[in-house]
């Protein structure tokens, strides 16, 4: 892979669910080290885009491509994409009864790190012994101000909204993706929880990682500073700009923007 290959390129992406087209030609390029915010009203297709990037089986891609490090990932299973380094923080994390956080995290980390070792041909150097894993897990839990008892609870069962979102970022911290998609990670968070989660994301962000922040509101962007902001409407990105675009949107609201876009 040449160094100038963009890390993540979405080209003319069309996707449907139950024969209803939701994405109608999305174009977006994310380079290493960049934070992109994707904003838009309800029903504009933001979450669908997140699901399609992660490989949700209910959506059918009818046109276009998703290139990750120059490779088309559309035919890859969700778990292959995750092992390649794509991470989706869910807007509504799934409750899975009877599966402990610790057991689930260990299985996820083992799979992702084994794949990374295989790709790097480093003879399994990235695999973690159980003790190393536990230490890493505790370290990341401390970063997100999570109680140790968290590890023994069942996956997302009985978690408050804030706990679920923290647990998503914990997973991101442990899996160390190179492309993270955060789907409304700020929804349902009070201001303190929002700060903890944002601090967590900022601590993980770096020159090797691309981040796509999906959000309704500008307030998340006060905590995690985007380099680029995109507005999505009716399954397309209708406007792109710098951080000022989010401020402008906050001031004008989606309705006015919709009118402007329609007029163009």
């Amino acid at each position: 892979m040449a160094n100038d290959t963009p890390m993540f390129v979405i080209e003319n992406l069309h996707a449907s669910i139950d024969d209803k087209e939701i994405l109608r030609g999305v174009n977006l390029t994310i380079n290493k080290g960049e934070v992109h915010a994707l904003m838009g009203p309800n029903g504009s297709g933001k979450s669908t885009l997140a699901y399609v990037l992660a490989g949700h089986p209910s959506y059918e891609v009818t046109e276009g491509s998703i290139l990750f490090n120059g490779e088309d990932i559309l035919e890859k299973e969700p778990d292959e994409r995750a092992r390649d380094g794509i991470f989706l923080a869910f807007q509504y994390p799934t409750v899975i009864p009877g599966v402990s956080m610790a057991n689930f995290l260990r299985m996820a980390v083992t799979n992702v790190r084994s794949a990374r070792s295989a790709a790097a041909n480093d003879g399994g150097a990235q695999k973690l012994a159980p003790r190393e894993f536990r230490r890493l897990m505790r370290e990341k839990m401390a970063l997100l101000k999570m109680d140790d008892a968290f590890a023994t609870r069942y996956l997302n069962e009985g978690f408050s909204g804030g706990e679920k979102k923290r647990a998503e970022i914990l997973q991101m911290a442990l899996l160390e993706p190179t492309m993270a998609i955060l789907d409304e990670t700020d929804s349902g968070l009070d201001i303190d929880a929002l700060r903890v989660v944002s601090d967590g994301v900022n601590a993980l962000a770096g020159p090797e990682m691309g981040i796509l922040l999906i959000t309704h509101y500008q307030r998340l962007l006060n905590h995690i500073k985007p380099h680029h902001v995109h507005i999505m409407m009716s399954g397309r990105i209708v406007q792109s700009g710098g951080p000022e675009l989010a401020m402008e949107l906050e001031a004008k609201g989606y309705e006015q923007l919709r009118a402007e876009v329609a007029a163009d």
């Binding site: 992660a54 490989g55 949700h56 089986p57 209910s58 299973e77 969700p78 778990d79 994409r81 995750a82 092992r83 991470f87 989706l88 869910f90 994390p93 799934t94 899975i96 009864p97 009877g98 599966v99 057991n103 689930f104 299985m107 996820a108 799979n111 992702v112 794949a115 069942y154 996956l155 997973q171 899996l175």
Partner: peptide, 28 residues
């Protein structure tokens, strides 16, 4: 399927995901 997808999205292959879910079903 939503459970399987969630686990797959964390790098866990489908068959392992199914096993984890069944174990979880009996775990309590």
């Amino acid at each position: 399927e939503e459970h399987i997808f969630y686990l797959q999205a964390r790098g866990i292959p489908r068959s392992e995901a199914q096993k984890l879910i069944v174990e979880g079903f009996f775990r309590p």
